[in-house]
């Protein structure tokens, strides 16, 4: 009997590995697959609907739809919209959407991360329990309430902060002011959006921080680490990808937010990078604003705008996924 394989003979063909699952397993597999595919199907149907509806306008406008900023509906005497003479451009709205959402995320991330760290590592049990419940409630709050609160309470304060920013950082191009209008600016909208997404990012960050492996935390403490040094060396590297993921979820919510932004932002059909001036853009709010009084052709243009928002969200989320997978592997 030989134990060592004889290398001179050819190796056998690799066997096909098969498995015949039981009926219950196959049924569940079907149900789960159906559930998984349904979201994809719904997404696809929305995309097809928007593309189909917006096709006419997109064809007539061409690239001008995303590079132009005019929104002009020309009607003939019979009240029929003249598609060739009308202009539909959403560049200002696209830029405005990204601007407001970016401001929101920049404000929200540090606050959320600090809040999550406090809740995970510093807060006494009682405070922790109450705050976690409150934050989860806040995440599910109707956005119109944020909008109203933002309009009546936050805006006067945000205006003061905006003036401070302009006074001390006015030399930065995006804090420049050409006219003295501080109300209803992208900055104010960004602050309101930040209050909306802080609970989301906090919730996700807290979840991931609390999963930090205990043996690593203990390893740091056993080396004479302070709590802050332990957080920096162990918790942040472990939770980084989760925080980025939460921030991207917040970014997505901020980009798609309609009502809250509608109440606190001046929609102006001109690209504006100066975040403190009361002139901004937001895709979702624009669609809401125009929808009520739009004729059939303008509706089609709004559908095309919806398609653009859809694709923008898709692009941002894909970038987010790449970032998460890049930051994820290290520190885990």
């Amino acid at each position: 009997m030989t134990i060592a394989p004889n290398r001179s003979t050819s190796l056998p063909a690799r066997r096909e590995l098969s498995n015949k699952p039981r009926l219950s397993d196959r049924v569940f597999r079907g149900v789960a697959t159906g559930g998984g595919l349904s979201s994809l199907v719904i997404l696809g149907l929305i995309f097809i609907f928007l593309a189909n509806q917006g096709y006419q306008v997109l064809k007539s406008e061409g690239f001008g739809f995303i590079t132009g900023s005019n929104w002009l509906v020309v009607q003939d005497n019979a009240g029929i919209t003249d598609l060739a003479a009308s202009e539909f451009g959403i560049a200002a709205m696209l830029v405005g959407t990204l601007l407001c959402a970016t401001i929101a995320v920049i404000i929200a991330i540090p606050i959320s991360v600090l809040c999550a760290l406090y809740l995970t590592f510093y807060a006494p049990q009682v405070i922790k329990r109450i705050m976690v419940a409150l934050i989860d409630l806040m995440a599910a709050f109707p956005s119109i309430l944020f909008g109203m609160w933002g309009f009546f309470v936050l805006m006067p304060h945000a205006e003061y902060w905006a003036r401070l920013l302009h006074k001390y950082f006015g030399w930065l191009p995006f804090f420049k002011m050409d006219v003295d209008i501080f109300e209803r600016s992208p900055f104010v909208a960004g602050v309101v959006l930040a209050t909306m997404i802080i609970p989301i990012i906090t919730s996700i960050s807290r979840e991931i921080f609390s999963q930090t492996p205990l043996d690593r935390i203990q390893a740091a403490y056993a080396l004479g680490s302070t709590r802050w040094a332990m957080i920096k060396a162990v918790v942040i590297p472990y939770g980084r990808s989760g925080v980025v993921g939460g921030a991207m979820l917040g970014l997505g919510r901020a980009m798609g937010e309609t009502v809250a932004v509608y109440t606190v932002l001046n929609l102006v059909y001109q690209i504006n990078w100066q975040v403190l001036i009361g002139a901004g853009g937001n895709m979702a709010s624009m669609i809401l604003l125009k929808f009520g009084e739009a004729g059939p052709t303008e509706i089609q243009a709004l559908m095309a705008a919806g398609l653009a928002l859809f694709i923008l969200t898709l692009i941002v989320n894909s970038i987010a996924n790449i970032i998460v997978s890049k930051t994820g592997s290290k520190g885990r």
Binding site: R216, A222, G224, S225, T226, A229, V234, P237
Partner: peptide, 26 residues
């Protein structure tokens, strides 16, 4: 100092950084 039952190096750090981690932490 303490060595634990399960080896627990910091996975986000290199071998060298792991050894010197205590200096940074403390």
């Amino acid at each position: 100092g303490m060595v634990f039952q399960k080896p627990n190096p910091f996975p986000s750090m290199t071998i060298a950084d792991n050894v010197l981690a205590g200096l940074k932490l403390a």
